[in-house]
Design a protein around this nucleic acid. Structure first.
Lengths: 169, 169
DNA sequence: ATAGCTGCAAATCTTTTGCACTCTG
DNA sequence: CAGAGTGCAAAAGATTTGCAGCTAT
């Protein structure tokens, strides 16, 4: 297993909050939409949030601040950020979703631990290439894809073992 | 791009309703659960349903019959059928789900047309192998995975073109 | 000024649950 | 008969939306 390109360590630049804000501002302008205090606060919150977060995490964080942003605005803005290509929405278990910032980051997919909730990122150009090959075969124009692997991480197995110990009682 | 195994046409047997029912009955027995009139009707409805269906489709279908099955029972039983390995739940767009019967069928993933809703099945052993390789690399035990490609099918593009024609008016 | 925003609360949508009653093993 | 399963309606969880008042441009 060593023919195609496995994963060359390409460089990507982690963008600053300013850069992200500008990018969003430009996007908004092209749509005749506006930058607001709420949207800027949201961007800042996302910038400081952990790599993978859920909508409600953001709402909770913002609630603690003074300049509050309503739940409705959070959802409305998250959708815009997704369209703008700043955020990507993925699956966290079969029903929940999480977001992650993707500007300045390479495309990747996830291994999601169903025990601990831990998320491991992986990228594989070979899989990406195969996906494109498949789309070509079916005359399909790919817009997006979801590729999440659910399972149990090493830590998760450890927890399982502990649980079994207890169960013996 | 022609080294590994692409997709040999392995044989799989389409199971009868009886076989599926028996399989479920066995599964229930091992859990000390019971077969009921409702569960049998649900199995029959699934057996006659289109390849890919949503929970609400099933509920609608069953509502038309005399021996009605409640919404709650449908959901409860769908979950059991998934655990039993008779059904698989997949993504139909980012938020909705659809089910499909998998007994006697080979594993596959989907291309989902975001215009027409059309679902194309694809299978690729090379991708499956790469997934396993990745899990090994991260010490991850795969339980399940979701790999759906969203995009626009040929028919979808045609519709788009028609829409553009109209838009010119 | 005026088209976009925002918060709020009500409305959706899908799935889950509590409970009293019914039925399978 | 006991433990499961069922329907119903209420509850829950995650988003979305209508609306009246605020605000970037």
């Amino acid at each position: 297993m060593d023919q195609p390109t496995a994963t060359p360590a390409r460089k990507t630049v982690p963008p600053s909050l300013e850069e992200i804000t500008n990018r969003f501002r430009t996007f908004l302008a092209t749509r005749k939409l506006r930058m607001t205090r709420e949207r800027e606060e949201l961007l800042a919150a996302i910038f400081h949030a952990p790599r993978h977060f859920e909508a409600e995490d953001l709402i909770r964080t913002l609630k603690r601040r003074d300049g509050r942003v309503s739940r409705a605005t959070v959802y409305r803005t998250l959708a815009l950020l997704e369209e703008c290509g700043i955020l990507r929405k993925s699956l966290f278990g079969r029903n929940r979703h999480f977001f992650e910032s993707v500007v300045g980051r390479r495309h990747h997919d996830h291994l999601v631990c169903i025990r601990t909730g831990k998320i491991i990122e992986f990228e594989d150009d070979r899989i990406e290439a195969l996906q494109e090959e498949i789309c070509r075969k079916y005359g399909f124009r790919m817009v997006d894809h979801v590729h999440e692997i659910f399972g149990i991480s090493e830590e998760g197995s450890a927890e399982d073992d502990k649980a079994k110990e207890k169960a013996k009682t």
